[in-house]
Simulated scan of single mutants.
Amino acid sequence: MHSELSEALEAYRKDSEDVMWPHITEELADVCIRIFNACGEYELDLETAIENKMEKNKARGYKYGGRRI
């Protein structure tokens, strides 16, 4: 997961504008695939974890200078 995310960051830093976003998108897809594979392998309920995290984030208020990002 980490290596794929690092590849997305590297593409952002090094690629020209016309190839940067497709390359980043491809690497982010790889991140998701690895995460989904890990969740399947270890029987982790990612959907519930995401829903719970979104609710938790709503309750904690705004950050980063008072604006949502």
Rank of each mutant, 00 (worst) to 15 (best):
A11W: 02
L5T: 00
D45C: 03
I69A: 01
N57W: 08
F36R: 07
Y42T: 10
R67Q: 06
N52P: 03
I33D: 07
M1P: 10
K56R: 15
S6V: 14
V19E: 01
R34N: 04
H23T: 14
D15M: 01
A38T: 15
Y12N: 00
E26A: 08
R68Q: 14
S16F: 04
M1F: 08
K14V: 08
V31M: 00
D18L: 05
G61N: 07
C39I: 10
H23D: 13
A29P: 05
A8M: 08
K58N: 13
L28F: 04
R68P: 03
A59D: 03
K63T: 14
I33M: 12
K53S: 10
I35C: 02
M20S: 05
K63C: 07
E4R: 00
A49P: 01
H23Q: 14
Y42M: 11
D18C: 00
E27R: 05
K63M: 10
E51G: 09
L44V: 15
K56F: 15
V19Q: 03
R67I: 11
S3N: 14
E17H: 08
T48G: 03
M54V: 09
E43W: 08
E26K: 03
L9G: 00
K14Y: 09
I24D: 03
D15E: 09
E51Q: 12
L46S: 09
A38I: 15
H23Y: 13
A11V: 00
Y62T: 14
P22Q: 10
S16A: 09
Y12R: 00
E55Y: 10
E17A: 04
N37A: 12
A59R: 02
L9M: 09
M1K: 06
M54Q: 04
K14N: 14
L46P: 00
L46V: 15
I33E: 02
F36A: 01
C32L: 15
E4K: 00
E27Y: 08
